[in-house]
Design a protein around this nucleic acid. Structure first.
Lengths: 236, 236
DNA sequence: CGAACGGACATTGGATGCAATACCTATTGA
DNA sequence: TCAATAGGTATTGCATCCAATGTCCGTTCG
């Protein structure tokens, strides 16, 4: 096991990503340390890390609040992600896809294909596809073998509330369209078509982003106000 | 003034970037806190931040060491930077360059031009050009108006020892070539040529990176071993 | 009745003390 | 002479304590 600070950071990171902590919500040190059963020290360390990662905003003498991602922010993230994924795809296409990664991609694609053919849509399918989608992109990044690129992409995939928005995001048509994109990207990479692979990856991410943004707009409209209760009103 | 943790982080960050702390060097908490006249707490906070930024490596129960950037790492960084700068240039070209930024760029370019025409090369010229170069790129990022992109680029510009390597990096020919690149990028943006601006920015960063990498290789060859003295050998 | 002022409190920022862990070294035995 | 082990020590990890700061609320004065 790692240090407590690290595990607290992981826990809090998950909470921010899956929406347990809403946007604008204050991260109270003593509350968190009480609920996690540790002292304030590792909590503070974890909060500092999450702020450096961009998940929290920090104001001196006031503390940390969950960063609010507007529609504009999500658009910005996906604009950057598209060129980064394009770079990864092009790099792999030009350098050649190692057999190991080729095998993984093949497996991922055939499983996704099975999911498409089943023509069903439920929570299990959504979950399975989510993992397959991540595996596809991760494998390409790994094959690109660029540590810095992986770090940047990691940052681009950490968006507060992403999980909850994604939850109502997908449907079967999305899955099929995405699968078809993946197949083309894979073939372009396998055929060493660098420019084409880059273009396809960019376009794929752009389309995914556009769908996400549409849902993000619906998601954030009902709750435009950022909660910011510094202190709970005293009882009586 | 901000908190002590923040100023300590700034100080240490500069030290890592300008080579005061060499690659692989241990960041001893008590030494740092003594030399800066603060307690261990803000130092620990600062070290955590720098580790999250990627400037330090962290191993539990051992502490923080300055991250070693190999030639491969620098290549990776510049590969990512080139597509990010390309995205920024294209974005500005497509959305149009605001008058304010146009004015700044014009001023930066004319000052750079004056530097080229002077046909001199000394420490002051190098310093001035370094600032002008940063201003040029910063202005484009600002005009691109993409918060996430700026964060990613910031990460890509934080490389340990960058300052010391850059110190012996430039010469007059480099300056002239770079100026000519900047002029073309500016014109492409002003003419709303999005694809061309992206290509030129990419190529410009690629060339800059290639030069830096050549020097990096010369720089790191003499000291391949990463210093890792956990404790200073006791005297006698 | 409204606005400004003052006090109290919650919360964060920093310092210090203590425990735990790992490393280094010296010693001993084969 | 080399290797393994045991002990000492430096250093980190965490908890707690104290100071500082900002916010909220009640009161008072215009």
């Amino acid at each position: 096991m790692a240090t407590r600070g690290q595990s607290v950071a992981r826990t809090l990171r998950e909470g921010v990503l899956d929406g347990t902590f809403g946007p604008g919500e204050r991260m109270n040190e003593v509350d968190i340390s009480n609920s996690l059963g540790v002292s304030r020290t590792p909590v503070r360390s974890a909060l500092g890390i999450l702020a450096a990662e961009g998940l929290l905003d920090y104001v001196p003498n006031s503390g940390y609040v969950v960063r609010h991602y507007s529609v504009q922010d999500v658009e910005d993230v996906y604009a950057a992600r598209s060129v980064l994924e394009g770079l990864a795809a092009r790099t792999v296409a030009e350098r050649g896809l190692p057999d190991r990664h080729r095998g993984v991609l093949h497996k991922v694609l055939s499983e996704t294909r099975a999911l498409c053919d089943a023509q069903e849509w439920n929570e299990d399918v959504r979950e399975a596809w989510s993992r397959l989608n991540e595996a596809f992109h991760d494998t390409i990044f790994e094959a690109a073998d660029n540590r810095h690129l992986r770090e940047l992409i990691g940052k681009s995939r950490s968006i507060p509330q992403l999980q909850t928005v994604k939850f109502r995001w997908h449907d079967l048509d999305t899955l099929i369209e995405s699968y078809s994109d993946h197949v083309e990207i894979f073939e372009a990479i396998a055929d060493r078509q660098g420019a084409r692979a880059e273009y396809l990856a960019r376009e794929h991410v752009y389309r995914s982003g556009r769908r996400l943004i549409a849902n993000w707009r619906r998601f954030e409209s009902p709750t435009p106000a950022r909660r910011s209760s510094r202190r709970v009103p005293r009882a009586a």
